[in-house]
Amino acid sequence: IGSLMYASIFGNVSAIIQRLYSGTARYHTQMLRVREFIRFHQIPNPLRQRLEEYFQHAWSYTNGIDMNAVLKGFPECLQADICLHLNRSLLQHCKPFRGATKGCLRALAMKFKTTHAPPGDTLVHAGDLLTALYFISRGSIEILRGDVVVAILGKNDIFGEPLNLYARPGKSNGDVRALTYCDLHKIHRDDLLEVLDMYPEFSDHFWSSLEITFNLRDTNMIPGSPGSTELEGGFSRQRKRKLSFRRRTDKDTEQPGEVSALGPGRAGAGPSSRGRPGGPWGESPSSGPSSPESSEDEGPGRSSSPLRLVPFSSPRPPGEPPGGEPLMEDCEKSSDTCNPLSGAFSGVSNIFSFWGDSRGRQYQELPRCPAPTPSLLNIPLSSPGRRPRGDVESRLDALQRQLNRLETRLSADMATVLQLLQRQMTLVPPAYSAVTTPGPGPTSTSPLLPVSPLPTLTLDSLSQVSQFMACEELPPGAPELPQEGPTRRLSLPGQLGALTSQPLHRHGSDPG
Rank of each mutant, 00 (worst) to 15 (best):
130 L>D: 03
131 T>D: 13
133 L>C: 03
134 Y>V: 05
138 R>M: 04
138 R>F: 07
138 R>P: 03
145 R>Q: 09
147 D>R: 07
149 V>Y: 02
149 V>E: 03
150 V>R: 03
150 V>I: 12
151 A>E: 01
153 L>D: 01
154 G>T: 09
157 D>A: 08
157 D>W: 01
160 G>H: 01
162 P>A: 08
162 P>K: 07
164 N>L: 04
165 L>W: 11
166 Y>L: 04
169 P>K: 10
169 P>R: 03
170 G>T: 01
170 G>H: 01
172 S>C: 06
176 V>W: 01
177 R>L: 06
179 L>C: 08
181 Y>S: 04
183 D>G: 08
183 D>V: 11
184 L>Q: 01
185 H>F: 07
185 H>A: 08
187 I>F: 01
190 D>M: 05
190 D>P: 03
190 D>Q: 07
192 L>A: 01
193 L>I: 09
194 E>W: 07
194 E>M: 10
198 M>V: 09
199 Y>W: 09
202 F>P: 03
204 D>N: 11
205 H>G: 08
206 F>P: 01
206 F>G: 03
208 S>H: 10
210 L>H: 03
214 F>C: 08
214 F>R: 03
216 L>A: 01
220 N>G: 06
222 I>S: 12
223 P>T: 10
223 P>M: 10
224 G>N: 10
226 P>E: 11
227 G>R: 10
227 G>N: 11
227 G>H: 10
229 T>E: 10
231 L>F: 07
231 L>S: 11
232 E>N: 13
234 G>S: 09
234 G>H: 12
235 F>V: 09
235 F>W: 10
238 Q>H: 12
239 R>V: 11
239 R>Y: 08
240 K>I: 09
241 R>D: 13
242 K>S: 13
243 L>G: 11
243 L>C: 12
244 S>M: 13
245 F>P: 12
247 R>S: 11
251 K>P: 12
251 K>L: 11
254 E>P: 09
256 P>N: 12
258 E>A: 08
259 V>G: 11
261 A>N: 11
265 G>K: 10
266 R>V: 11
266 R>L: 12
267 A>N: 09
268 G>H: 10
270 G>M: 11
270 G>Y: 15
274 R>C: 13
274 R>G: 11
282 G>D: 11
284 S>P: 10
284 S>H: 15
285 P>I: 15
285 P>Q: 11
289 P>F: 04
294 S>Y: 15
296 E>Q: 13
297 D>K: 11
297 D>C: 06
297 D>N: 15
298 E>W: 15
298 E>M: 04
302 R>E: 08
303 S>N: 13
305 S>H: 01
308 R>H: 13
313 S>R: 10
313 S>D: 09
321 P>I: 06
326 P>G: 05
329 E>Q: 11
330 D>H: 15
332 E>T: 08
335 S>H: 11
336 D>G: 09
338 C>Y: 08
339 N>W: 08
340 P>A: 13
341 L>I: 14
342 S>N: 11
344 A>W: 04
344 A>I: 07
346 S>P: 07
346 S>I: 06
346 S>D: 11
351 I>D: 10
353 S>E: 06
353 S>F: 01
354 F>N: 13
354 F>K: 13
354 F>I: 12
358 S>R: 09
361 R>F: 14
362 Q>P: 10
362 Q>A: 12
363 Y>K: 07
363 Y>V: 08
368 R>F: 12
368 R>Q: 08
368 R>T: 09
369 C>S: 07
372 P>Y: 08
372 P>F: 10
375 S>T: 01
377 L>E: 09
377 L>A: 03
378 N>H: 14
382 S>F: 09
383 S>I: 15
383 S>F: 08
386 R>T: 12
386 R>K: 11
387 R>L: 13
392 V>T: 15
393 E>I: 03
396 L>H: 04
398 A>W: 04
399 L>I: 05
400 Q>E: 04
400 Q>G: 06
402 Q>D: 05
405 R>T: 04
406 L>D: 03
406 L>Y: 04
409 R>M: 09
409 R>V: 10
410 L>M: 09
411 S>N: 15
411 S>I: 08
411 S>V: 09
412 A>L: 13
413 D>R: 09
415 A>P: 12
416 T>C: 10
422 Q>V: 06
423 R>L: 06
425 M>Q: 05
426 T>G: 08
426 T>S: 07
426 T>R: 08
432 Y>R: 15
432 Y>W: 10
433 S>Q: 15
433 S>V: 11
434 A>H: 10
436 T>K: 13
436 T>F: 09
437 T>P: 11
438 P>C: 13
440 P>A: 13
441 G>V: 13
442 P>L: 09
443 T>M: 06
443 T>G: 10
444 S>N: 13
450 P>T: 09
450 P>Y: 12
454 L>I: 10
457 L>H: 08
459 L>E: 13
462 L>G: 11
464 Q>L: 10
466 S>W: 04
466 S>G: 11
467 Q>G: 12
468 F>N: 11
469 M>V: 07
472 E>I: 08
475 P>R: 07
475 P>W: 04
478 A>L: 10
478 A>V: 11
480 E>F: 02
483 Q>W: 12
492 L>I: 11
497 G>P: 13
500 T>I: 13
503 P>C: 13
504 L>I: 07
505 H>W: 06
507 H>F: 06
508 G>H: 08
508 G>Y: 13
511 P>M: 06
512 G>V: 15
